[in-house]
């Protein structure tokens, strides 16, 4: 009996001592017990039927794969120089189309199959930098910035229909690879997305 009591006291003391030394949970975090949580950035999001992160990621993924398979990129004798032009948002909702093209550019640059020239939106900054370099080095022979092999343009469209029970949204994102010298469209592809919201049930 005495032995059992001694063991119990020892265990209790050990627990108190060791728990005192153990670091408290939540180290390296601020507000770890709040309602804010980090989620999987690549998870499928179906909060509303509007164009969302899942659509952006799926569009960029699909169109990049298609572009990398096109013979003008895959079988080009030299790594082609490409410039992104604007993708027109022809839908009735706000869609940041630059987010789509930026994502495609990142993926294409990682592939090593394409070189990108600065966007037209950033050309002023690039021009300033060139002028600064040219004046500092007296090098007037800078290569023209307009010598892209291809430009990428495109459109985002949507068709929406709804009745009392169902809301259907169809998105179509199309991109083109254009040779600016000849005006020839050498590649085009599209990503279609359909999202259906049912008022009677929750789910896919």
């Amino acid at each position: 009996m005495k032995t059992i009591v001694n063991i119990s006291i020892s265990i209790t003391l050990a627990t108190i001592l060791f728990s005192g030394c153990a670091p408290k949970g939540g180290a390296g975090m601020v507000g770890y017990d709040s309602n804010v949580k980090y989620g999987d950035a690549k998870a499928v999001e179906t909060v509303t039927a509007d164009f969302g992160s899942t659509d952006l990621q799926a569009t960029a993924e699909s169109l990049t794969q298609s572009l990398l398979e096109s013979r003008y990129i895959a079988k080009a004798p030299q790594t082609p120089k490409v410039r992104l032009r604007s993708v027109n948002n022809l839908t009735y909702e706000h869609i940041d189309t630059k987010a789509i093209t930026d994502k495609i550019r990142i993926k294409l640059l990682k592939s090593g199959q394409v070189r990108f020239l600065a966007d037209t939106a950033n050309l002023n900054q690039v021009q300033d930098e060139r002028e600064l370099t040219a004046s500092a080095t007296a090098n007037k022979g800078n290569k023209a910035m307009a010598d892209s092999d291809y430009i990428i343009t495109g459109n985002v469209r949507s068709i929406k229909k709804a009745n009392d029970d169902v809301k259907d949204v169809y998105y179509n994102v199309s991109l083109e690879l254009v040779n600016p010298q000849s005006g020839e469209i050498v590649w085009a592809d599209e990503k279609e997305i359909r999202k259906v919201t049912s008022k009677s049930s929750v789910g896919w």
Binding site: D40, K42, T46, T54
Partner: peptide, 9 residues
């Protein structure tokens, strides 16, 4: 790398 999660039916 990993693709984003994609919904399919």
């Amino acid at each position: 790398d990993a693709t984003p999660w994609k919904a399919i039916t």
